[in-house]
Nucleic acid binder design. Structure first.
Length: 595
RNA sequence: GGGGUCGUAGCUCAAUUGGUUAGAGUACCAGACUGUCGAUCUGGGUGUUGCGGGUUCAAGUCCCGUCGACCCCGCCA
């Protein structure tokens, strides 16, 4: 005999008269003294079960003693509800189960927070995480996990159709000091040596191309020991892929198809393909960021022409020093609190290295209120109005300094202004590719470092600049961006061992270090490496955006808190002496007592 | 490492200028009720105001420290 014949979301009018047995959680008990109603819940839905003492006194007794979240088994018969008792808000609202017996499979304490989505949305997240198994009983959390499953399943199907092979790569691997901080795992068999958990399967997937696997993908867990954010967890999931004998165009086409498939699976409008593209330079100039949010305007406008030869010293000095004067028009925000503009936003500009933040508030009658307008000539005002399409009610924000300082500041102000104005449509999905990233940038110490990673191939026509002006060299790298979030990125890799060695040299890596860290890769390149490239998409971020959530924690079953703690399992935790002895570790600190 | 918001009943929150016995909704408990479905009605407060110290006649409120959650900067090749 099965424990249940149907699920709690399954029964309809067609089953009227059928004997059924249901299992689930007590969602609510409504005790009328005579009749008792139990709403029985499982993953699939809720079914109303009615207990009438005239049907079974024993069942009625048990039913009225049930409490929320008891796990019960109910058997009875499906019955059509009278027309005036149909509940149009329930999928199973046309029927109920006339119950003849009920078994309490397990009692339950009163939950520490309400499990109805209505009451649970404002519950402290730390409490939800401590009792995550209860939090995950909630419909909205189950929907999120279900969407995640469907998106990943759709990705698997898509890649399978495209002749990709799913291959697992090691989780115990080698530390790579560049990039993010590694999670380390001590080796018991090799005293004093450590594995690292992978930040990404980068080198393994390249080696799979050299193995001739040609098209690889993996839903890969990755680990980075860095500080957390709403969209960053120390362990996260990438949809990782790599292809041989391809150009940038081939990879973008495959990912375009994946995006379309996933959007369809999530029930969102499928974007027209190919997805739009812009260069990194254009993204920086128009949006002040390499991950532009295209859901609203307020784009950055260059004012070098407008203020050429201006009397306003701040702008004149910036332009004379090879800098820039740029602005955004925060449309309609002339009444933004002056405190926000002069303290929060100006503070942000100063953090970004600017001297301050100039602004104009355009009153409804068209007059410009601003500390700086008095320095502008009539011609400048006219040109400025035209350049920024200034209308009554607008707020114009200026930045004047070197472009690489001005642009990021205006980019961040644009996002704040857009949010403040409420013009960022939450239900829109605006994808864009960003291509042509610089290959190198200068580190704080002035050293040349890879923007992406040291295996990234340069754009061929920029090769002559490699030694003379390395910072002008563009990479064959690309990011896929959705609504201002970097979803993923990748590149065409270097497949020539001599060129790869030259790259390490340009990056200033000592030969000994190259040998220690990358010998396997350089050697593999010498045994017949195909041209190849790939990309990785942040699966958590993708699902978060598709689900309309604000945090990736909402689409991860068991996420960590901002201090990277698992407050349900209470991890990390102290270990005993013997465990430490086994792995040859001596603690330099006494662990803080656990909470 | 830095900036910010917060911490009061199981949960979500309130508590005037520092002033009586810390309240409300909900949950929970008990009772009533044969058609409810956010059931209803009656009754019940279940509290280490995160923790430690200080100021004061008096602290949920002010000060110092500390712990924790969240958001952001740095960081994330």
């Amino acid at each position: 005999m099965k424990m249940r014949t149907h699920t709690c979301g399954q029964l309809r009018s067609a089953e009227a008269g059928t004997p059924v047995q249901l299992c689930g959680w007590v969602d609510s008990v409504r005790d009328h003294g005579g009749l008792v109603f139990i709403d029985l819940r499982d993953r699939y839905g809720v079914t109303q079960c009615v207990f009438d003492p005239r049907d079974s006194q024993a069942a009625w007794d048990t039913a009225q003693a049930c409490r929320s979240e008891y796990v019960v088994q109910i058997s009875g018969e499906v019955r059509l509800r009278p027309a005036d008792m149909v509940n149009p808000h329930m999928a199973t609202g046309t029927i109920e189960v006339r119950s003849r017996s009920i078994t309490v499979l397990n009692k339950a304490h009163t939950p520490p927070f309400p499990l109805e989505d209505r009451g649970a949305e404002h519950v402290g997240e730390d409490l939800r995480l401590e009792f995550r198994y209860l939090d995950l009983r909630r419909g909205s959390m189950q929907q999120a996990l279900l969407l995640r499953h469907r998106v990943l399943q759709a990705a698997r199907n898509y890649f399978d159709e495209q002749q990709f092979v799913e291959i697992e790569t090691p989780v115990l691997t080698k530390s790579t000091p560049e990039g993010a901080r590694d999670y380390l795992v001590p080796s018991r068999l090799c005293p004093g040596l450590f594995f690292a958990l992978p930040q990404a399967p980068q080198q393994y997937k390249q080696l799979l191309m050299m193995a001739g696997l040609d098209r690889y993908f993996q839903i890969a867990r990755c680990f980075r020991d860095e500080d957390l954010r709403a969209d960053r967890q120390p362990e996260f999931t990438q949809i990782d892929l790599e292809m041989s004998f391809v150009t940038v165009e081939d990879i973008i086409a495959v990912v375009d198809g994946l995006i379309a498939r996933v959007m369809q699976e999530a029930g969102h409008p499928v974007p027209a393909l190919p997805l739009p593209r812009m260069t990194w330079r254009e993204a920086m100039d128009r949006f002040g960021t390499d991950k532009p949010d295209l859901r609203f305007g307020m784009e950055i406008v260059d004012l070098a022409q407008v203020f050429h030869g201006t009397q306003f010293k701040v702008f004149a000095r910036a332009l004379e020093n090879g800098g820039a004067v740029k602005a955004i028009n925060a449309k309609g925000l002339f009444q933004a609190p002056i405190k926000m503009v002069e303290e929060d936003w100006t503070g942000l500009a100063k953090e970004g290295g600017l001297g301050g933040l100039a602004y104009i508030r355009v009153q409804q009658d068209g007059t410009w209120k601003s500390p700086i307008v008095k320095f502008f000539s009539e011609a400048e005002k006219t040109a400025l109005q035209a350049a920024l399409d200034i209308q009554p009610g607008d707020l114009v924000l200026f930045g004047a300094d070197h472009a690489d300082k001005v642009l990021p500041v205006l980019g961040r102000l644009r996002l704040l202004a857009g949010a403040h104005a409420g013009v960022i449509a939450p239900d829109q999905f605006r994808f864009t590719w960003v291509t042509g990233f610089p290959l190198f940038e200068r580190s704080e110490e002035g050293r040349l470092v890879s923007v992406h990673h040291p295996f990234t191939a340069p754009v061929p026509e920029d090769l002559p600049l490699l030694d003379s002006e390395p910072e002008q060299v563009r990479a064959q790298a690309y990011d896929i961006v959705l609504n201002g979030t970097e979803l993923g990125g990748g590149s065409i890799r270097i497949h020539d061992p001599e060129f790869q060695a030259r790259m390490f040299k340009i990056l200033g890596l000592p030969e000994a270090e190259v040998q220690e860290r990358f010998r396997h890769l350089l050697r593999a390149l010498e045994y017949g490496a195909p041209p190849h490239g790939g990309l990785a998409i942040g699966a958590d971020r993708l699902v978060m955006l598709l689900a309309g959530r604000q945090s990736i924690r909402d689409v991860i079953a068991f996420p960590k808190t901002q201090k990277a703690l698992d407050v349900m399992m209470n991890a990390p935790s102290a270990v005993d002496e013997k465990q430490l002895r086994d792995i040859h570790i001596k603690l330099a600190v006494t662990p803080k007592a656990e909470p």
